[in-house]
């Protein structure tokens, strides 16, 4: 790494984040489970298959339209577990709270966590609270960890991606990032854009029950769809070709992004996922997604191709083709 100090982009989920993991974390902690570099670790304990994951939440502002840091902290970890093909079961919660933080706000956050855990069907079974002096953190930071049971007969892995498979996206991009940005900066943007923050585990479970052959799930959080697909293409040693006109983005989000200079393809989502499936299963998977509240706008956005290996291409609306690179730099800090 060229940098001498941590920059905001080291936390962006993009290229510098990857460098940080590969050059500092990996050499210290290297082991085969970590080596899969998935959002959740897959464990085999005497034949019992478990998924285990953790995530920290530093979103600013703490309360935004469509959610708050509490809902985000539960959904984020639930979704990371779900993306490994697991049924999320138990969560831990660690909080670092700033001296002077309003107890009413804490109650509100804990209430959201309770509601989100209820919807997801998980229990919060252990926790920890630390308080630090004023100014040492910005209000409250929350860490959650979770374990889940990997569903029988399910093998979610980039190794199972093959050319010819379809890439399906569960809904519109950019809603979460834009809602948080609007509420943080008081931007004049339509109130109709709200965070998509939601637990996706029931939808994933419905899909896997009907089509256990699904090759991969991935939630495009920090770094957005473009970064997620680049990671998938690199891990699976395939190319991915997307159709720009098929990728759903709300008109209000697109217009706001044009003005602010953001690209929805790189914006964090908290209630969306991509899945890669054999074409013969596409219709069934779409049918299941369309019948669930968190998958009504699902559609095929592209296909897996032989080459170029490790790259993502985009066929544009006017018929050109260009590279879709992973996120470089820091598009929107403290979005989750």
């Amino acid at each position: 790494m060229n940098e001498k100090q941590i920059q905001m982009a080291h936390g962006s989920g993009g290229k510098l984040s990857r460098d940080l993991v590969e050059e500092i974390m990996w050499p210290a902690f290297a082991n085969p489970i970590l080596g899969e570099m998935h959002d959740g670790a897959k464990l085999d304990i005497n034949g019992v298959k478990l998924a285990f994951t953790t995530d920290s939440f530093v979103v600013k502002p703490l309360f935004f339209s469509g959610g708050d840091i509490g809902k985000l902290a539960v959904c984020g970890t639930v979704n990371d577990l779900a993306m490994t093909g697991a049924k999320p079961l138990y969560l831990s919660v660690g909080m670092v709270i700033e001296e002077g933080f309003a107890i009413d706000d804490l109650r509100r956050i804990v209430g959201s966590m309770q509601a989100a855990a209820g919807e997801a069907g998980v229990q919060i079974v252990t926790g920890d609270t630390k308080v630090v002096e004023k100014g040492a953190v910005d209000g409250i930071y929350i860490n959650t960890a979770g374990i889940g049971a990997i569903m029988t007969g399910v093998d979610i892995s980039a190794n199972r991606i093959r050319p010819g498979q379809d890439v399906i996206l569960s809904g519109c991009l950019g809603d979460h990032s834009l809602a948080v940005m609007r509420d943080r900066h008081g931007l004049v943007l339509p109130e109709t854009v709200v965070s998509d923050c939601a637990p996706l585990n029931h939808l994933v479970e419905n899909i896997l029950t009907a089509v256990p052959e699904v090759a991969l799930f991935r939630d495009p959080t920090r770094g957005g769809l473009a970064t997620a697909l680049n990671e998938i293409a690199a891990a699976a040693k395939v190319g991915i070709l997307l159709d720009e006109t098929a990728i759903p983005v709300r008109a209000a989000v697109k217009a706001a992004c044009d003005i602010l200079g953001y690209d929805p393809l790189y914006m964090a989502n908290e209630g969306k996922f991509v899945t890669v499936v054999d074409q013969q299963h596409t219709a069934k998977v779409l049918e299941i997604m369309h019948s669930h509240r968190y998958g009504q706008e699902a559609c095929v956005i592209g296909t897996v191709v032989h080459k170029p290996v490790g790259q993502v291409g985009l066929t544009t609306a006017i018929g050109g083709v260009r590279l879709l690179d992973m996120l470089i730099g820091d598009q929107l800090p403290r979005i989750c």
Binding site: K307, P308, Q311, G313, V321, R322, L323, D325, I328
Partner: peptide
């Protein structure tokens, strides 16, 4: 040029 793959993206 770099971001959009000039010299990098080849079908």
């Amino acid at each position: 040029w770099y971001k959009y793959g000039a010299g990098r993206w080849q079908m």
